[in-house]
Simulated assay, not measured.
Amino acid sequence: MGVETLQSHKVHDGRLSYCRHDSAATGTPMRFSIFVPPGEGPHPVLIWLSGLTCTEDNFTTKAGAYGAAAKAGVAIVAPDTSPRGEGVADDPAYDLGQGAGFYVDATEPPWAAHFRMESYVTGDLLQALAEFPVDLARCGIFGHSMGGHGALTLALRQPELFRSVSAFAPICSPTRCEWGRKAFAAYLGADEDGWLQHDAARLIEAGAARGRFDEILVDQGLADGFLADQLKPELLEEACRATGQGLTLNRREGYDHSYFFIASFIGEHIAWHAARL
């Protein structure tokens, strides 16, 4: 699987590249950014999953992560949030279609043809990283909002791929919020029992996390306008408490849903992952 480098920049003595490759999972070209820290490698690697409306560029330009990543000796990969391009289904709403893949493999038309983001992230993207000096045996995953949902559920569903998982303001129980119910109905169909396999709180309630991760790290801003209706971290907290799953849930007074929040604590997340990788 060939990877084309579109741009490359030196940053914090490492190398940031914007890349494109063909994905068998989505049937489209896909883009991602990758920061490789200074040094020989192979380096441990973190996969960052972004939220609604984002591309591979939002985290790259806004999170301010690469100084901390260089210090920790960790590579960071940020893929796009959905397939895109001519012939790819879309919706006028910001929370469905292109830019809103929700990190599931769609089973319903017109989405099933291309919207296979779980298979992309856990398959084609990781395979593409073989061209870089990273150690996939030391791989963690983290994300924000829709991407926080993706990080939690992909880690719980395929723990053999990831040693550590954290999230900023994740959609903790998409089967119990408007964003998730709308997306799951479109992508996965009307059978709500099938939705439960893509809901972090429900997966933990069902025992999916048992013995897999010593701890999950979540940061949530208390001034986040989506906190009560869409994110619902208390449901994740209740599930972890009921099953004995380790969880650190930092409630950050005054912080909102923006990348200013992420930039304030991204260094702590990178150091937390580095200690586990």
Score class of each variant (00 low, 15 high):
Gly211Ile: 06
Leu222Trp: 03
Phe213Arg: 05
Leu227Met: 10
Asp229Val: 04
Ala223Thr: 09
Ala167Leu: 07
Leu203Pro: 08
Ala208Pro: 03
Gly221His: 12
Pro170Met: 00
Gln220Val: 09
Phe213Cys: 01
Pro170Asp: 00
Gly211Asn: 08
Leu203Asn: 00
Glu205Leu: 13
Gln197Ser: 15
Pro174Ile: 01
Ala208Ile: 07
Asp191Glu: 15
Cys172Tyr: 11
Ala190Leu: 08
Trp179Glu: 08
Ser173Ala: 15
Ala183Ser: 14
Ala208Cys: 14
Ala167Cys: 02
Gly221Phe: 02
Arg212Met: 02
Asp199Leu: 07
Leu188Ala: 14
Ala200Ile: 01
Trp195Ile: 14
Asp219Val: 08
Pro174His: 05
Ile216Phe: 15
Arg181Trp: 10
Gly211Val: 10
Ile216His: 03
Pro170Trp: 07
Gly207Ile: 05
Ala208Gly: 04
Glu215Leu: 05
Tyr187Val: 12
Gly194His: 12
Arg181Asp: 00
Lys182Thr: 15
Glu215Lys: 09
Asp191Tyr: 13
Glu215Pro: 00
Glu178Leu: 08
Ala201Ser: 15
Cys172Lys: 09
Glu215Met: 12
Gly211Trp: 06
Gly221Gln: 04
Gln197Cys: 05
Leu217Arg: 05
Phe226Gln: 09
Ala209Cys: 09
Leu196Gln: 13
Arg176Val: 06
Glu192Pro: 04
Tyr187Gln: 11
Gly225Trp: 03
Gly194Thr: 09
Gly221Thr: 05
Asp224Pro: 06
Leu217Ala: 01
Leu231Trp: 11
Ala169Leu: 06
Ala190Phe: 12
Leu231Val: 02
Ala223Lys: 05
Ala228Ile: 11
